[in-house]
């Protein structure tokens, strides 16, 4: 279980990273924390020609409030965001979800943006981005662009990042006044990939419900109050999902109905 050979690039700034990306395209891979990438490379599921290590780039290490969102640089680790003193009050949902991402040891190396770029549909951070309707900032030599969450993740480990692009930051909107959120995750063991993860954000008018672990990317639905079980059932079915060795598709749908109900009710109760 050893990785195939690769060139290792440790750029001094984002510009240098983008130059390599422009030159090497699909053969290049950004490595921030490498907690998913490294494992897949050891298994030789992925064998990039060049690994671009951005973990040390200071310009990607900031957590900042910008325009109603928490902007998290691409080199910010999950542990660093979790330890950010303003997190719980500006976006409690993230504060609840982050402890579910991997383990203490992997969160100290794994980054927020790396998890988004990896695009595993059972991970918590893509779900958080989707249900909060966040954005991802992409950069290439061609320029920068902002992609909304719903347009960012295209499928199983597939994102809208072009071959010459990299994620430079992610934006998680801060909690609106009067908004309430809730989160539950069902995994086989503590720290495992979710069988089903359900997150919700609601206000007086509606609730936005997101589900990870079922479809190829997080599924999100916006529901007006009151939310009935038929709506949750339709949502559960609409996500598709398949049997795997950990859970049947049917069990996953049942969890979407039941945990979805629990999460929606928690939001409703907190609002009243």
């Amino acid at each position: 279980m050893k990785p195939a050979a690769f060139d290792y690039a440790c750029p001094d700034n984002v510009g240098e990273a983008l130059t390599i990306l422009a030159e090497r395209g699909a053969g290049a891979r950004i490595c921030a924390g490498g907690q998913s990438l490294g494992a897949m490379m050891n298994l030789r599921l992925m064998s990039p020609e060049v690994l671009i290590d951005i973990a040390g780039l200071d310009e990607l290490k900031s957590i900042a409030m910008t325009g109603g969102a928490i902007e998290v640089g691409a080199a910010v680790t999950q542990a660093e965001l979790l330890a950010w003193p303003d997190l719980a009050k500006t976006q409690p949902l993230l504060a609840w979800m982050l402890p579910w991402v991997g383990h203490y040891q992997t969160r100290q190396r794994g980054t927020i943006c790396g998890s988004l770029a990896h695009g595993d549909p059972s991970s918590e951070l893509p779900l958080a981005l989707a249900v909060l309707e966040g954005e991802v900032l992409l950069a290439s030599r061609r320029g920068r662009r902002v992609v909304a969450a719903k347009d960012f993740q295209l499928g199983m480990m597939a994102t809208d990042i072009a071959d010459d692009e990299m994620v430079v930051a992610a934006r998680f909107p801060t909690a609106q006044v009067g908004a309430v959120s809730a989160f539950h995750e069902i995994a086989q063991r503590h720290g495992d990939f979710a069988i089903v993860a359900v997150a919700a954000v609601g206000n007086r008018n509606s609730v936005r419900l997101g589900v990870g672990g079922v479809a190829d990317s997080p599924g999100v639905i916006e529901l007006k109050w009151p939310v009935n079980n038929d709506q949750l059932n339709d949502f559960a079915w609409s996500l598709g999902g398949a049997d795997d060795q950990h859970a049947t598709a049917r069990y996953r749908r049942e969890l979407v109905r039941r945990i979805g109900r629990r999460v929606v009710d928690e939001v409703r109760d907190a609002l009243s």
């Binding site: 049947t248 069990y251 749908r253």
Partner: peptide, 21 residues
């Protein structure tokens, strides 16, 4: 496992439209 027990316990599922693999 949770899923195995669920399959043992769950009654008929409310119908849905999507194709399941």
């Amino acid at each position: 496992t949770r899923s195995n027990l669920a399959e043992l316990m769950l009654e008929a599922e409310p119908p849905g439209k999507a194709k399941v693999f």
